[in-house]
Amino acid sequence: MNYVLLALSWIVFYTLHSILAASKLKRILEGKWGNAYKWYRLAYTLISLLLFLGIVIQALLIPKSLLINKGDLTNYLGYMLAGFGTIIVSKSSKHYSVMRFLGFATSSKEDETLVTTGLYSKIRHPLYAGLVLIFLGYFLFAGTISATVHVACLLLYLPFGIYFEEKNLIIQFGEAYQKYKGEVPAIIPKLW
């Protein structure tokens, strides 16, 4: 039952994440809220953070049940994948303003440009790729059923998250993003 509740918590988190990030909802709220809309991003970030912390606390309270035998190899691979994922997330995040991400600064649509250099020249969603590596690394290191639920929920959400995010990006950047989408893979880089 604990694992079902954990999975349902992730479903709520990812569903709210997609709904609250939708361009259509943002346009509606901007029209209704007027000047107060400037607080939307901060509210969105706080809701996401509180839900994520709730999931972390929930996972910590679940008794540990190992799914795979832990050893030096799984620990090493887990640390390596999580470390590599963290590097990818931090390198891909350098194009974003932390203050804007948190909702303390705003920018106009003209200030935003489509980033297609660095990691973004190899994959369209390096943040997602980094998160997959972090979650997989955690699974290998922890080896628990809870860690399996975390990874499974992320992997199940990714196609939906990418779909909705790219809908927003097509609205924002139009033909430029369509062309970029046709040339660069979503998460797994081409090795040739």
Rank of each mutant, 00 (worst) to 15 (best):
44 Y>W: 09
56 V>A: 14
100 R>P: 06
146 S>R: 02
13 F>S: 04
172 Q>N: 11
24 K>F: 13
12 V>L: 13
38 K>E: 13
73 L>W: 08
192 W>P: 11
125 H>A: 04
7 A>D: 07
101 F>R: 05
29 L>P: 03
42 L>G: 01
97 S>Q: 06
151 V>G: 01
60 L>K: 13
140 L>Y: 09
41 R>I: 10
16 L>S: 01
144 T>S: 08
92 S>T: 12
2 N>M: 07
25 L>V: 12
47 I>G: 02
170 I>W: 03
52 F>V: 11
153 C>D: 09
129 A>R: 05
1 M>C: 10
71 G>I: 07
44 Y>I: 10
93 S>E: 05
28 I>D: 03
172 Q>P: 01
159 P>K: 14
124 R>M: 08
117 T>L: 03
165 E>C: 02
76 Y>S: 14
180 Y>G: 01
48 S>R: 07
124 R>D: 04
145 I>C: 08
166 E>I: 14
19 I>R: 01
29 L>F: 04
85 G>F: 02
164 F>K: 00
84 F>M: 12
76 Y>A: 12
137 G>I: 05
102 L>S: 00
119 L>I: 08
158 L>E: 10
90 S>A: 15
145 I>H: 07
116 T>L: 10
45 T>F: 07
97 S>G: 07
154 L>A: 05
111 D>Q: 06
106 T>P: 11
127 L>T: 11
110 E>Y: 00
9 S>M: 03
166 E>T: 03
102 L>C: 01
85 G>I: 13
111 D>Y: 00
165 E>G: 00
